[in-house]
């Protein structure tokens, strides 16, 4: 089955991973800007990072026949440094017309601080002013419920935000309704120990349905698996769910959400193989 991984940090992964993803049916990915494992010292570092996400990475993905899309921002963890964050936000507009940029992300909260909230709202302001979609990171572990609530509060307080153009990511059992009840899209991240397992993600689908929801690997430099979406497909098949339903979650839904971005020019599988173009 063809699938799209709507959240994976491929700059942390090898070309072998791209190859394995292709063999498992991956036809496109989207890569939000994130924390590199250390705090960067200057806005110039982010400029270089944005170039990597919009120049080299789509070419590398293309070598394996995968269409590469991306989202730009300063992540929630480094957003604690407000002055640096504002410098980075100023850099973003020059990249928004690049052909693989879908919007602003992954913005969000990390430790639910006021500084993070301030920069989150400034990112949202940039997104609505520049007519961009938004991809949102929700915090980890004990911070997730509170942080997701705070994020929804901030989004709802800005009347300009169109919920159907916003994806709230890393939802779990206790946060999925927060996103869905207010009309936002949401995604479940399949991680080995934190976030969701494929089985729990399938449970959530069975409880809350398959509308406006997708799954991703969020593969990065930490414990993660870029082939987690195929694991979810397998779990759904073992439970007896139809191929149509599974395809909706791993292919149709990401396409529907991404299609709201003016830069999303998806080409159906088998057409772009080897061209290196997004």
């Amino acid at each position: 089955m063809y699938f799209i991984d709507p959240h994976v940090h491929m700059i942390s992964r090898t070309t072998d991973d791209y190859e394995r993803m292709t063999r498992m049916g991956c036809v496109a990915i989207s890569e939000p800007a994130f924390w590199a494992g250390y705090d960067r010292g200057s806005a110039a570092s982010f400029h270089d990072y944005f170039r990597q996400l919009t120049e080299f990475e789509p070419m590398r993905a293309g070598w394996s026949g995968i269409q590469h899309y991306t989202w730009l921002c300063i992540n929630a963890k480094e957003a604690e440094n407000v002055s640096l964050a504002r410098e980075v936000i100023k850099l973003i507009p020059e990249f928004l017309d690049r052909p693989n940029v879908l919007g602003i992300g992954e913005i969000g909260l990390n430790k639910n601080t006021m500084n993070e909230s301030t920069i989150f709202q400034e990112h949202v302001d940039l997104a609505v002013r520049m007519d961009q979609q938004i991809l949102i990171h929700t915090p980890h572990l004990q911070d997730k419920f509170k942080g997701t609530h705070m994020i929804v509060d901030m989004l709802r307080a800005d009347y300009r935000v169109q919920p159907q153009r916003v994806l709230i990511d890393h939802v779990e059992e206790h946060t999925v309704r927060l996103a869905r009840d207010h009309g936002f899209w949401c995604a479940m991240t399949l991680y080995p120990t934190t976030k969701c397992t494929p089985a729990r993600a399938a449970d959530i689908i069975e409880q809350y349905g398959d509308e406006q929801i997708m799954v991703n690997s969020a593969g990065d430099w930490g414990p993660s698996n870029p082939l987690a979406v195929p694991d979810f497909i397998q779990e759904m098949r073992k439970r007896g769910h139809s191929e149509t339903k599974i395809k909706k979650i791993v292919y149709d839904n990401p396409l529907k959400f991404f299609s709201q971005s003016k830069n999303f020019r998806f080409q159906a599988p088998d057409i772009t193989y080897g061209t290196g173009k997004p």
Partner: peptide, 15 residues
């Protein structure tokens, strides 16, 4: 809803 209740047990309070 045990999974959700376990999640809430390990969650900070929203104000």
């Amino acid at each position: 809803d045990r999974a959700e209740r376990v999640q809430m047990l390990f969650s900070d309070t929203y104000v």
